[in-house]
Computed example of a mutant assay.
Amino acid sequence: MEPRDLEHPTSSGETLPCGGLVTQSPGGASRGASQWGDGVQSLPPGATRSDQALAHEAGHRAPRTAHPGAGETARPAGRTRRRSAPAVCSSGAEINQKQDRRLYSLAKIFAETASIHAAATAIMQLEPWDFMAVYYDAIDHFCHGFMRYRPPRSPWIPEQDFELYHGVVEAAYRFHDLMLGALMTLAGEDTTIVIASDHGFHPDRLRPQHLPNEPAGPAEEHRPYGILAMKGPGIKRDELVFGATLLDVTPTLLTLFGLPVGRDMDGKVLVTAFD
C-alpha cells in the first residue's frame, strides 16, 4: 500500500511530515518542524527542534543530566501533539542528579524511543511499503528500572523513592499507546496490525526483592506471559486466541500475505483469529 499523505502546513504554506522530521521544502530550504502546541512552528533553515532545545539549555545543565521538567511529561513523535502527555515524575526538581541517575535514565529511554518512532513514522510516510515492523524495547527498560516502584509499594521500597517513581510504568504504557495511535493512523483501516510481546513483568507481590548476580538475573522480574493483539481486514473482532506463542507470529504473517509457511518452522498459523 502507498503511505498516507499526513503532513502539516506551516505558516508559509509549506508542508512538513508528522514527527518533527527534517525534510526538503518546495523552495529548496531544509526546515524542521516543532510539533508541540497548537500549531507547527517553523525553525531556521537547517535547524531541528532538538537544535532549538539544546541551544536553549546550553550552559544551564551539567553533562549527562536531564532537565528536571523532562520527567514531568513525555511526548512521542507522530500525530499526537494535541493529546495530553502522561505524567512521569512529578517531582523531578527535587532529585539530586549527582547521586540519583534514574531521572537521566528516564530521559535517555524516552529519547531513544522517540528516535525509533520518528524513523518509523518517516518511513511510513515517505517510502512505499507493504510490510512494516517496528521494535520498541522501551517498556522492557522502563519495567526493569521502575516496576519495583509501581503501586502497591513493596515493604523494601523507600517511601521517598515510591513517591518519586510510582507513576513511571503507567506513563510508559500511555506513551506507547500514543505512539501506537500514530502508527495506526498512518497505516489506515485497510492494514492488518499485529502487536506482540514475548513476556511481561510481575507487577505485584511476585516482584523479586533481589536478583541473582548473573547475566540472566534480570529475567527473574519477567512474567512468562506476553500479549498478542490483531486488527484488520479478515480478522475476527472480540475473539480470544488461546495457546499462541512467539513462534506463531511469522507463520501467521506469511499466511496473511498468501505465502507458504516453511516446513522447518515450529510455529503454527493462528487460523482461529481469521474470519
Rank of each mutant, 00 (worst) to 15 (best):
S91K: 10
A172Y: 07
G69W: 10
A229S: 06
R101A: 15
P86T: 00
A62H: 06
M124D: 03
R81F: 11
R237S: 10
S84T: 15
E7L: 14
Q97P: 02
S91P: 00
A85C: 14
I123T: 06
P3A: 12
D190R: 15
A87C: 01
S42G: 03
T15Q: 01
A74M: 09
G217F: 13
A114H: 04
G69M: 14
Y104E: 11
G13C: 01
A107Y: 12
R75M: 07
D238M: 14
A229K: 01
R79P: 06
H199Y: 05
L246G: 13
F162S: 06
R153H: 03
M124E: 01
V134L: 15
L253C: 11
L183A: 07
D51A: 08
P212S: 09
G13W: 05
A118E: 09
L180Q: 10
D248F: 05
W156I: 02
R4F: 11
W156P: 01
H199E: 03
I123C: 04
A216S: 11
A133F: 13
D248I: 01
H117F: 14
T255S: 15
Q99N: 14
T65I: 10
P152C: 02
G258L: 03
Y173H: 03
A120Q: 06
G71C: 15
L259I: 07
L16C: 13
D264N: 08
T245S: 14
F175I: 02
D264Y: 12
P260A: 08
L21H: 05
F274E: 05
L256H: 05
F274V: 04
W36P: 00
E14Q: 09
I193H: 01
R102K: 13
V40W: 09
T10N: 06
W129M: 00
G20E: 00
V169R: 07
I235E: 04
H60I: 04
M1T: 12
G200E: 01
I195F: 11
M124F: 12
K236V: 12
F131I: 07
V241N: 01
G226E: 02
G200A: 06
F274K: 02
H144G: 06
T65M: 10
S25Q: 05
F110T: 10
Q24M: 14
V134W: 04
E72Y: 13
A219W: 07
S197I: 08
A47M: 15
L211T: 13
F146R: 02
D264H: 14
D100T: 00
D238L: 12
A216G: 12
A114D: 15
Y136L: 10
A120D: 03
T185A: 12
D100F: 08
D51G: 02
K98H: 12
G46H: 06
A58Y: 09
N96G: 03
V194P: 00
G37N: 04
R82S: 13
A120W: 02
H117V: 14
Q35R: 10
S30H: 09
P44I: 01
G32V: 05
Q24A: 11
T272I: 01
F162E: 06
A172E: 03
D38Q: 11
D204A: 05
R237Y: 03
